[in-house]
Design a protein around this nucleic acid. Sequence first.
DNA 1: ATAATTGCAAATGCTTTGCTTGTGA
DNA 2: TCACAAGCAAAGCATTTGCAATTAT
Lengths: 136, 136
Amino acid sequence: MSKIEEKCKLKGVRLTDQRRLIAKVMGESLDHPDVDELHKRVSKVDGKVSIATVYRTVKLFEESGIVEKHDFKGGKARYEQSPDVHHDHLIDVNTGEIVEFVDQEIEKLQDKVAEKLGYKLVDHRLELYGTKIKKN
Amino acid sequence: MSKIEEKCKLKGVRLTDQRRLIAKVMGESLDHPDVDELHKRVSKVDGKVSIATVYRTVKLFEESGIVEKHDFKGGKARYEQSPDVHHDHLIDVNTGEIVEFVDQEIEKLQDKVAEKLGYKLVDHRLELYGTKIKKN
DNA sequence: ATAATTGCAAATGCTTTGCTTGTGA
DNA sequence: TCACAAGCAAAGCATTTGCAATTAT
């Protein structure tokens, strides 16, 4: 049973063949696929799964905190399995490649900024867009 | 002549009555209106301006660096006049209110993170989502 | 048994675009 | 004058939804 499947059980999310398959594909994905891409990967195993089901399932998983949705610039929503430790993303503007990173100092400063403005931070979005530095 | 109008001249953007009006409305907006809202405000002055023109104009202004587009969570694109000094945004998740802020330290750290990963930062997105802290 | 889930196609909401007429420099 | 802009309605694209048939517990 996949890790995502376990989380479904835990959250009381009813499992179907389609959901199990989508969970498996998500769990095996090391990148950040969009719904179309997920549907393609799922279809290789079961060609009868509709894209509507993929949409419904990622939404369900997201609402259950099982996957994370990202709306990076210029395009469709992309998904990844909810990580154990929070991270942010750097997107290569040339290749679309995504690099994950963690910076505790920035995280702390965000809290501080919010507090200074009279707010309690409940969510945030930090995305860096960059170009690869050529090494000589 | 509005500030945005001046920028248009500078960038060689041809001015029309509609663009002048949209520029004026944008310049007078202290919030971050979406296209619908802009169209409403524009329509109060000239009811014949079509929403397609508003879409085309904000896009043109954005490409010319005259306005900034923001895709905050959950909805339509919102616009503001390009500020002289960069700032980021904190969004009140209850009211939708937007607070602008500047934090040089975070900015610096972002550059540092990108560099450490082997990238040159060309753009970034930092949004804080929070709830107002009640004061007693 | 039966409430929830699926597949399909149609609908949605924001944004863009083709085409014809109008207009700024 | 004439390349470019505007208005309108239609098209596009990602995502959601109504409905009838299917399925999990």
